[in-house]
């Protein structure tokens, strides 16, 4: 059974006075453990697709299933719990909470799932060590470099041991070398831990780690290539 299965997905939303047809009948299947790169010009619906994959948003029509579970049948709170347990997000702009230390940022998803304090702290330290920030756990985001922030974000995405990591332009705000480190981290999540990774990216380097590249245009899949 595929991890994610989308069929005939459309998504319309209002932006000011105009209706945007962001997705127009998109089909997509993602298997457990693969790395998928989503590419396409801006306005092609990449971000909207990411939101639907991550259960942040629901499609206007079509069916979306996560682990065989139809997303349309879940209540808002059930969607939140699904997100909390099974999905980890990595954003282009890192999206750390500026008032909290690296450790607290990593603990955040566990707080909302009610993980006990001691267990949480241990897990956060373990993950920060794993991304190479053992000496940065008490630092606030503004005391960290871009690459370090993105590593905190990856550690946070892993907090609840999710099945899938959704990364929206994870290297977009980083220089090539730092971006390379981040991509290597993401690749290992798939290779070592068997996690599914979906990347939205323009970065040719990022495409290199993907097993599959899906190109979008005008809200539809236009090309799908398997990487060697």
């Amino acid at each position: 059974m595929p991890l994610l299965e989308l069929a005939g997905i459309t998504k319309d939303y209002r932006l000011g006075k105009t209706f945007v047809h962001a997705l127009r009948g998109l089909d997509l299947t993602i298997e457990q453990g693969e790395i998928v790169a989503l590419m396409g010009p801006s306005g092609s619906g990449k971000s909207t697709l990411m939101h639907i994959l991550g259960a942040l948003d629901t499609p206007t029509s079509g069916t979306a299933a996560f682990d065989g579970q139809s997303l349309q049948q879940l209540s808002e709170n059930q969607l939140v719990t699904l997100r909390g347990r099974k999905v980890g997000f990595v954003f282009q702009t890192f999206n750390l909470v500026p008032t909290l230390s690296a450790q607290k940022n990593v603990e955040l998803p566990m707080i909302f799932l009610g993980v006990p304090k001691r267990k949480r702290a241990a897990r956060a330290k373990e993950l920060l060590t794993k991304v190479g920030l053992a000496d940065r756990i008490r630092h606030k985001p503004n005391e960290l470099s871009g690459g370090e922030r993105q590593r905190v974000a990856i550690a946070r995405a892993l907090a609840n041991n999710p099945e899938i990591i959704l990364a929206d332009e994870p290297t977009g705000n980083l220089d090539t070398e730092t971006g390379g480190t981040i991509l290597e981290l993401l690749r290992r999540l798939s290779v070592d831990d068997g996690r599914t990774v979906v990347l939205v990216t323009h970065d040719p380097e990022a495409v290199r780690i993907a097993g599959r590249v899906i190109r979008l245009r005008d809200g539809r899949t236009v090309e799908e290539t398997a990487n060697a």
């Binding site: 991550g54 942040l56 808002e76 709170n77 939140v80 719990t81 997100r83 909390g84 347990r85 997000f89 999206n95 750390l96 909470v97 500026p98 955040l108 998803p109 909302f112 799932l113 946070r156 907090a159 609840n160």
Partner: peptide, 16 residues
């Protein structure tokens, strides 16, 4: 606003 979005993305319910 953005922080609220982040917290919701990582599993915060409305009640939280």
């Amino acid at each position: 606003t953005k922080e609220i979005g982040i917290m919701k993305a990582v599993g915060a319910k409305n009640s939280h």
